[in-house]
Amino acid sequence: MTDQHIADQHQPLVPNRTVWLDRFGDLDVIALSEQPVPQPVDDEVLVRVAAASVNPVDWKTAAGEYPPKGEDQLPFALGRDLSGRIDALGTRAHNMLSVGDRVMAFIDQDRGAQADYVVVKAVELVATPDGIDDATAAALPLAAMTAWQGLFDHGRLEAGQRVLIHGAAGGVGHLAVQFAIWKGATVFATAGEHDLDYVRSLGVERAIDYKNERFEDHATDLDLVYDTQGGETQARSFAMLKKGGTMVSTLDPDEDKGRALGIRTVPRWHAQPNAAQLGEVVDLVAAGTVNVAVDRTFPFDHVREAYAYTRDEHPRGKVVLSMTGE
């Protein structure tokens, strides 16, 4: 039986609404477009998406501020992580997968996750446990991999070390805090005044009001700074690191300053799909060791409002699109 034959058995009868970008600009370029339902071949899987998260990289991409996606690649679909159910399998998809299985994934930039149907490589999929709902599963992959890879792959964080995490109530930050505590590190964290109690509840050594306090007065002799802010925040953070410490930033770190101070800097990097690492995180969530904060869920046809909320309101945790309306 051919891949196409298998796919045809599950051919969806509804349109494939997709967040489709045909030009860069403000949020008015964000819209739903009906695109063909993709068909899985070889080791691919067709997922009927239940939920997809909205990440800062999405609105930055739409604005033309994300260098890996240029005008020469337009048009394309947006979104990097999703949850849903397997709808069809290619003939070489992993034999442990079945139609109807609940799954989540962080996918590469060649596809968009914010759609009713998305083709995913079997090796990108992670099973969604019964105790994790679709919104939580969709909120997890990209933010979790950004936090995990930043702390452990790039930052080399070990038990007993001292780490400062900026933006600790955000989508990446709240997970980074919990991963670092799970690892056995002493965690200092910055957040806005209205998020301090929440950050304290995660178990940090000190939650610091970034507007009304100087983090330099509380977080010293650090082994690692995890920076998602850049600018002045990053510049001030170098002095808090001990010689030989590490500055990990999702923005361009000042490598010259790092060298002058004896600080290791990690050049700008982007999180990569890694199902094995994501599976470790899912186990922590299923066990209750890590909690995923979903600030707000929007119906899929309110996608523009979801992008605006993510960009403008500094949500606590993640923002999610629901394709099912639930």
Rank of each mutant, 00 (worst) to 15 (best):
N55S: 12
S322W: 08
Y117N: 10
F179S: 06
E44F: 05
D252L: 12
G317N: 01
R296M: 11
R162N: 09
V285F: 13
L224P: 03
G184C: 10
P67A: 13
A144W: 02
E193V: 12
G64C: 09
S83H: 08
D254K: 02
Q114A: 09
L175F: 13
I132N: 04
R85Y: 12
L261Q: 11
G64T: 07
A122Y: 06
E305V: 04
A169D: 11
D116M: 12
G79R: 04
N274V: 03
L140C: 08
A31H: 15
A159D: 10
D217T: 10
G150K: 00
Q73Y: 10
N212L: 02
T61R: 11
F188C: 00
T91N: 15
T190R: 07
T297R: 13
V29Y: 05
V47S: 10
W269L: 02
E216W: 07
R214P: 00
R111G: 07
A219M: 01
I132K: 06
D130F: 10
Q4N: 08
I132T: 10
A159W: 10
K242R: 15
T146D: 02
G288D: 12
V49G: 04
V225C: 02
Q11H: 14
V37Y: 01
S83V: 03
I6H: 15
T18R: 03
V282G: 10
Q39V: 05
E216H: 13
T265K: 08
T310I: 07
D108V: 06
L202F: 07
G70P: 03
F179T: 08
R236V: 02
A93G: 09
L82R: 06
G100H: 13
I208Y: 03
G112Q: 02
A144P: 03
D295C: 10
V303S: 06
Q178A: 14
V123T: 04
A286G: 13
P75A: 06
L284A: 14
Q114G: 06
A52P: 13
R23N: 13
L164K: 06
H10T: 00
G171T: 08
L321G: 00
K121W: 13
G258D: 04
F215T: 00
D101S: 11
V281N: 07
D254I: 01
A169I: 10
F298L: 02
K257A: 15
R296W: 07
A122P: 04
T61G: 09
P129I: 07
L251R: 13
R304K: 14
D87P: 00
G112M: 01
E213I: 01
V303H: 14
R156W: 13
A93V: 04
V204L: 05
G184V: 07
P75R: 06
D252R: 12
W148R: 03
L196H: 05
A176G: 07
L78S: 00
G192L: 01
N16W: 11
E193L: 11
P12S: 10
K69H: 11
R111K: 15
